[in-house]
């Protein structure tokens, strides 16, 4: 498999530091890049056929079927919101989506049970 077409970088050097380091593992497990929000790990993986998101809560994979997920890709002052499809385990997938260089990518998940919304922001370099 080709290496990641896009390198995703966290935003830490660009002003404000997002909530980056907290509870549980912070290492990517699927070759992507990671952002933490408190105890929740978001891993974004750019692949030839689309973009995957993996979610881990305090070292426990989050059941994707219990959540909805959305990517918001902002480039040049325009934003495209893309709903992701829940897959097996803790994976969400956006088929055919590409992440252009320079884009800001907001990840937002919503709990189907509680309605709680939270997420993280990635920068694409």
């Amino acid at each position: 498999m080709k290496k990641l077409a896009t390198t995703l970088c966290a935003f830490a050097a660009l002003g404000l530091s997002a909530p980056v380091l907290a509870h549980g593992s912070t290492k990517p497990q699927h070759g992507g890049v990671v952002q933490m929000n408190g105890e929740t790990l978001f891993e974004l993986v750019a692949q030839p056929g689309g973009v995957s998101l993996y979610m881990i809560d305090e070292d426990e994979p989050v059941n994707a079927a219990g959540m909805t997920a959305k990517l918001s890709v902002s480039t040049g002052g325009k934003r495209a919101d893309v709903a992701m499809t829940p897959m097996k385990g803790n994976q969400f997938f956006a088929k055919g989506l590409k992440l252009p260089k320079g884009a800001n990518v907001g990840v937002q998940v919503t709990s189907k049970a509680s309605g709680a919304r939270y997420g993280a922001t990635f920068a694409i370099k």
């Binding site: 918001s72 902002s74 040049g76 002052g77 325009k78 934003r79 800001n104 907001g106 309605g115 709680a116 919304r117 922001t121």
Partner: peptide, 20 residues
Amino acid sequence: YDADYQPIKAAARVAGAIVV
């Protein structure tokens, strides 16, 4: 607002004793 300061639709919601 998103990172480019484009507006995002938002609303307040009562969640028990707090507003989210």
